[in-house]
Design a protein around this nucleic acid. Structure first.
Lengths: 247, 247
DNA sequence: CGTATACTTGATTGTGATCAACGACGGTGG
DNA sequence: CCACCGTCGTTGATCACAATCAAGTATACG
């Protein structure tokens, strides 16, 4: 068991099964054929719970384990002086942690926004998985390419967009990603565990200004956020405000 | 031959040889054992020249070829309205183009900043390479992780740093990367084929302001840019200004 | 020699930062 | 049950960094 986070990352006794995993179609093991699942499943050494506000790992730490996020939201960020920059949000199905090269310390921190469940497997086993099942290598490459594409959009957002465009862009991205992984079904249009400070640190603006932007969006009628929850009322309007490139 | 860029991407008759390639130690084929090089080399179907200001590919295009940049500088960028955001600069040894999934159109454009030479191989052959030589998969994953790490630093830079910090950060990163791939030996401290507009679009500020920042840096004595060339006079001072996290 | 491109400089404006105070909850403990 | 406190969000006043607008210079190139 991982000693680094022994009090934080709690190993679960009862595994959920890869065969019936509801997020497998989004995740690394999507490409594993049914008859190989038993084999890949034994790499998944542990399943953990991680409470909200707990760190999965911190900048500078050596990570020797890989994770698939099974449930909950995780936030990746970097700090400099007293400033924090949120890099991205991980949702169920997303791949986290070691990329098989444990000699490189993490360049960012990962913290749970909500209570989370994670499936873990040793980082070095990725290489074994590659050898046995090259499709996993291809799949991981595709996942990384998707992440890079999101990074590029994020850079575009922070570098070129106005505050309101940036915030709208984030909301739209999360809205779409939630729908992709089926999170919207139960939580309706209220899918939003983020504080305004987290939104601010993602968009590269101050939390004071986020408050004003949210008020503006409320006044325009595209969203409502009563009782610390954000309800998206008009996703198309939000998309227009976000000024997203047409594919 | 690639029809899309048939006039732009010029196929060369005389190949340089992978065995004696000076940038192989930086690139994807670093991990290929000498006795397999002949095999991998036959995947490298073409070697191209690409003149400065020519595009390798554009946003929205389907890319079915992968490239290792052999010589020159390439700039990746996105556009939105009339604004341009530079995403990163590719230097010799860097991997460009298709990641084996040609069903996804490019989310960014790639343009040559200087005259370039590229080694090309079919995107689909990556999967074959993975199967034959899993180390290539691991190496490509490592390259992608390094790129992601740079993306994260870039987001931090654009989101949290002041204009002068951002510009200094870019100069330091390029300075270090040039030294890594041995470009500095011949070009001394003048390694700089970038216009102020390109710097501006990377840092997310206007070219007018870049001019003022460069003047400031000149006055502080950390660099000199006479005759359209940038000479770095005091890299340590520049590092301090860039405010880079200590590893 | 004329034109295009890149860079410079000055004047003015504006978006979002900063500083400060206050309100609304939600949780905790008496 | 209520008082207290901490966190989070709101609002106002002021400030500053960088954008914008505009005009100029220097250099490369045909």
């Amino acid at each position: 068991m991982n000693k680094r986070n022994s009090q934080l990352l709690v190993r679960q006794e009862r595994y959920t099964d890869c065969y019936v995993c509801p997020v497998r179609n989004l995740a690394l093991f999507e490409v594993v054929k049914e008859d190989l699942l038993e084999w890949t499943q034994k790499f998944r050494t542990h399943q953990y719970t991680l409470d909200a506000r707990r760190h999965l790992y911190r900048e500078g730490e050596v990570i020797d384990e890989s994770y698939t996020l099974f449930q909950g939201w995780v936030m990746l960020y970097k700090t400099l002086d007293n400033k924090r920059q949120v890099l991205c949000f991980a949702l169920p199905g997303d791949f986290l942690g070691s990329r098989g090269n444990s000699s490189i310390p993490a360049d960012h921190s990962a913290v749970a926004i909500t209570d989370c469940i994670l499936c873990g497997f040793p980082g070095e086993s990725l290489i074994q998985l590659f050898k046995q099942c090259p499709e996993i290598g291809v799949k991981l490459m595709n996942l990384q390419q998707r992440d890079q594409s999101r990074c590029f959009s994020h850079i575009m957002s922070v570098g070129q967009k106005s505050a309101i465009e940036s915030v709208a862009f984030l909301l739209v991205e999360l809205y779409d990603r939630c729908h992709e992984c089926g999170l919207s079904a139960d939580s309706a249009d209220c899918f939003f565990p983020l504080s305004q400070e987290e939104i601010a640190d993602y968009a590269g603006i101050t939390l004071v200004h986020v408050s004003r932007v949210m008020k503006d969006l409320r006044n325009q009628g595209v969203l409502d956020n009563r009782h610390r929850r954000t309800y998206i009322l008009d996703i198309d309007a939000l998309r227009r405000i976000a000024n997203i490139a047409q594919p």
